[in-house]
Computed example of a mutant assay.
Amino acid sequence: MANGSRQAAWEFFGAELKRRREDAGFTQVELGTRVFVSGGYIGQFEQAIRKPQLDVAQRIDSALQTDGIFERLCKKLIDDRRYADYFAQAAELEALATKICDFAPALVPGLLQTPVYARSVTLAMNPFASDEYIEDKVSGRMERQRVLNDATRPLYWVVLHEHVLRIPVGRPVEMAQQLEHVAALARERTVLVQVLPYKVGAYAVMNGTLRLMEFADAPPTAYTEAVYSGNLLDDPAVVKRATAAYDLIRAAALPPEASLALIDAAAEDFRRCESTS
């Protein structure tokens, strides 16, 4: 489903939610109380500013006695084979964010990957998949990157663990090109990049990726990801703790210029490795 038609479908979801809520005689606050979100969230769902998570859609069906219509709509809209099921909603929010902060402990984040790197990562995780499946995943990742080319692109701040610079993905020359791509985006001021070096030792988030997203008209969210699972978190207390963890990581990371120097050095190491292989 194209982005335009997907947004139109979410607008239908919102309009239908408003109609069913009003037919039931609930205010936004009253419905929000019944489904354990704020009335403001209900308003954002109705305006298609924010998309409800599946469990919220299920509670809306229960509160409004709508026989599962919102659950079915939600499942249909987040069923995009370009993205893993657990990441689809985070991908939707990514396009609406005014600021994104990523911590990557092992791999270059999707928004910064080259097609060759993305293909190598996807194939490594899906060694028996068809070429069509691999290309769908790579295409989806490249499409996401358009958000960084928009005039209204979000502020994008990335902290890479030094693992990301040292783990070879693909051939050495391809890894060098990936690191050079990250450095080029940083020098163009499309993204602010820092590296968390090995010498730091233990760090605030030890069990997976962390992403923070801020929005113009909605509360911030946090997204964490581990092995074949992801969690989109919008509880204010949890987001506050995640933000504090990110701040600790950022404080321990190298400054931007030193980070770029380390990225350049790692790319050069891969170049030399390629020439001697």
Rank of each mutant, 00 (worst) to 15 (best):
N149I: 13
A184N: 10
V191W: 03
H181N: 12
G170W: 05
L196R: 01
V193H: 02
Y133D: 00
G201K: 03
Q178W: 05
L148K: 03
P197T: 13
P172V: 01
M175R: 07
H161W: 15
E162G: 04
Y198E: 10
V182P: 06
V159W: 00
P154S: 08
E132D: 15
R171S: 13
T221Y: 02
L160S: 09
E132M: 06
L165R: 06
L192R: 05
T190G: 04
D136Q: 15
L179G: 09
G208L: 13
R153W: 04
G201D: 09
T209R: 08
Q145K: 08
D136F: 00
Q178P: 14
V193D: 00
Q194W: 07
G201P: 13
P197C: 09
Y133T: 00
R187W: 04
R211C: 12
V164I: 06
H163A: 13
A216G: 06
V169G: 01
Q177C: 05
G201N: 11
R166G: 01
D136K: 02
E162D: 12
E143M: 13
E174V: 03
A186V: 04
G208N: 03
V200S: 10
W157F: 09
V205M: 14
Q145S: 14
H163L: 12
A186N: 05
G208C: 05
R211K: 14
L196Q: 09
L155I: 14
N207C: 03
E174L: 06
D150N: 09
V159C: 12
R144S: 07
L196N: 04
Q145L: 06
V182I: 15
L185E: 03
E180V: 02
H181M: 10
V191E: 07
L212D: 05
V173R: 08
A202P: 11
H181F: 14
V182N: 00
T209S: 14
V195N: 01
W157T: 03
A216W: 06
Y203G: 10
H161M: 07
P154M: 13
G201C: 00
H161R: 09
K137H: 12
Y198N: 08
P219H: 05
P154N: 06
A186C: 04
Q145Y: 05
L192M: 08
L179R: 05
V158N: 01
P168W: 07
R146S: 13
E174G: 02
H163K: 07
Y133R: 03
G140A: 11
A202L: 11
P220L: 14
